[in-house]
């Protein structure tokens, strides 16, 4: 609405409006499993602050969140639990795999207790490599996910 009193009209489709809304209110679930979780916490603190990009606050309940940032070594006992928490999240839901541990095992690639990639258990939308990835890299991962939700990603 302009200040002159004229009415500005923007047309869009319902899908576009939904995508826009979803991509700008991603509520991440705290899924910090190891050292990467520290960087995940730094991402939502005032220094980097993902709220500027419309990713809002961390939720502790899977029922209130739509983005799971798996941050940290996924070991074999944790993997079935991650899957169960993922199933408890309402649709639409997205997953970011943060750190090389979560992507393919990382430093523990020959370990007896580590799952070689969380994508063996749940579907992953965006991979953020690094050991650990910086908060800025994770922010970029979230922006990439937002673009993906809005079908804007250039792949």
């Amino acid at each position: 609405m302009m200040k002159t009193g004229e009415v500005g009209i923007k047309t869009t489709t319902l899908e576009k409006a939904l995508e826009w809304g979803r991509s700008n209110s991603l509520w991440p679930l705290t899924m910090g499993l190891a050292c990467c979780a520290i960087e995940m916490m730094a991402m939502q603190a005032s220094d980097v602050d993902i709220s500027r990009f419309g990713s809002e606050i961390f939720r502790n309940s899977p029922r209130q969140s739509d983005l799971m940032i798996v941050a940290g070594t996924t070991n074999k006992r944790m993997a079935p639990r991650i899957k169960r928490i993922y199933e408890e999240m309402p649709y639409p839901k997205y997953v970011i795999a943060m750190g090389v541990c979560v992507i393919q095992g990382g430093p523990y690639v020959d370990g007896y207790s580590v799952v070689m990639g969380v994508d063996k258990v749940i579907p992953v939308d965006v991979y953020v490599p690094g050991c650990p990835p910086t908060p800025q890299a994770l922010t970029y991962g979230i922006i990439t996910l937002q673009k993906k939700i809005r079908n804007e990603t250039d792949r």
């Binding site: 074999k76 006992r77 993997a79 079935p80 639990r81 899957k83 169960r84 007896y112 799952v115 063996k120 258990v121």
Partner: peptide
């Protein structure tokens, strides 16, 4: 000899050498 762990709905864990039976 990689071992895989899965969990049923009650929370009991099972271990197997078969990749299809867990993660």
């Amino acid at each position: 000899k990689v071992q895989y762990v899965n969990m049923d709905s009650e929370g009991n864990e099972h271990v197997s050498f078969d990749e299809k039976e867990g993660s």
